[in-house]
């Protein structure tokens, strides 16, 4: 059906009365409106400042009201935590660990099953993740400041996994590590069976497994501890050198199953990491042969890696000896780990 046009003929000519200005064209009207609008903006007047100020106050105030009203909804509820706990208790296997994103969400330690190790690291690139085969990334995706950086880092290291599981304000994603680091021996865990000496005098382990040495200051101890290195927990062999006992400290581990590499890290713990004038020297022997020396530099905070080739002894069980010395033993609490890799 054809709709009839309202215009039945050609447009009539504009009526102009003698002596009067012609009515403005649409273009002129638009120009006038634009001019009026621009004159409101320029030159700047007090009113402009007041409008900008009011807009800032109202905008930020509205955002503030939205933020504080939404915050409880964005964060996980108690029920969300319980759901994640139940799911992990059912699904986790030996070799699993939980990673937190953001890393500060450590309420997980309180709530999750105690059998599951919880990692709260700010990055997973370059981390050994000893004995971990699968990682459950527990995220608070709606928390202020949240980003997906840890997801990306773990995805790079994984060969597979599951799609994220949403549990209210929590999200669980499984990552199967492509190359899990499973050492043949992690030496800090074998300290109890090691022989520890200060100079040539043997040190004895107390009931807590802490080695103390005869005629040495009380502060001198050798123990398996978790210590803070650049704010992160590092399970390590803790050797607290003392200026009053300037003799080498030796830790000899018996019948350590060897692979192709001996890999480890060194660090100085606490404020002492910022001080010192000489490195701490960590000599490593397999049997009676020195295979390398790791030096923990003075005044250089960090978890410094070392690695030595043990291919010639791969497949054998040999004694591994670490000797700690320093020309500046004053306040040099050394934390080091070592593991033999296939």
């Amino acid at each position: 059906m054809e709709i009839p046009s309202p215009h039945t003929g050609p447009r009539p000519p504009r009526l102009v009365l003698p002596g009067s200005a012609p009515p403005p064209t649409r273009r002129e009207q638009l120009e006038a409106a634009l001019h009026r609008f621009l004159s409101l903006l320029w030159p700047p007047r007090l009113r402009h400042g007041a409008v900008a100020f009011a807009a800032a106050v109202i905008g930020l105030g509205a955002y503030g009201l939205w933020f504080w009203s939404q915050l409880p909804i964005r964060l996980p509820s108690e029920m969300d935590w319980q759901a994640a706990t139940a799911f992990l208790a059912r699904s986790a296997k030996p070799g699993d660990a939980v990673a937190l994103s953001p890393p500060w969400a450590e309420r997980a330690r309180l709530i999750l099953p105690p059998s599951l190790p919880v990692m709260a690291l700010p990055r997973y690139q370059g981390e050994d993740l000893v004995n971990v085969r699968r990682i459950w990334l527990l995220s608070l995706p709606n928390a202020p400041g949240f980003d997906r950086e840890l997801d990306r880092q773990l995805a790079v290291r994984s060969s597979g996994g599951d799609r994220p599981l949403e549990l209210g304000g929590l999200e669980l994603t499984r990552f199967d590590l492509a190359s899990p680091l499973v050492p043949r021996a992690f030496l800090p865990d074998q300290l109890a069976a090691a022989r520890v000496t200060l100079g040539d005098r043997p040190c004895e382990a107390d009931a807590a497994g802490v080695f103390r040495c005869p005629d040495a200051p009380a502060g001198l101890r050798i123990a398996r501890e978790v210590r803070a290195v650049e704010f992160l927990p590092r399970p390590c062999l803790f050797v607290h050198l003392q200026p009053q006992a300037r003799r080498p400290i030796t830790l000899r581990f018996h019948d350590v199953p060897l692979g192709t590499k001996l890999h480890g890290h060194t660090a100085i713990v606490g404020e002492a990491m910022l001080r010192g004038s000489a490195p701490v020297r960590l000599s490593v022997k397999v049997g009676d042969e020195e295979i390398g020396v790791a030096e923990e530099p003075a005044a250089t905070p960090g978890w410094h890696a070392f690695q030595f080739d043990t291919t010639s002894a791969a497949g054998q069980a040999r004694d591994v000896t670490f000797t700690v010395t320093s020309d500046d033993p004053d306040e040099r609490p050394l934390c080091f780990d070592a593991m033999t890799l296939p």
Binding site: R109, L110, R227, A228
Partner: peptide
């Protein structure tokens, strides 16, 4: 942080009882 990790070592747990 070292105080927290020292506690883990001494108490042989990284699981808090309250927070």
């Amino acid at each position: 942080m070292d105080k927290e990790f020292t506690t883990w070592t001494q108490f042989r747990t990284a699981q808090p009882v309250a927070g």
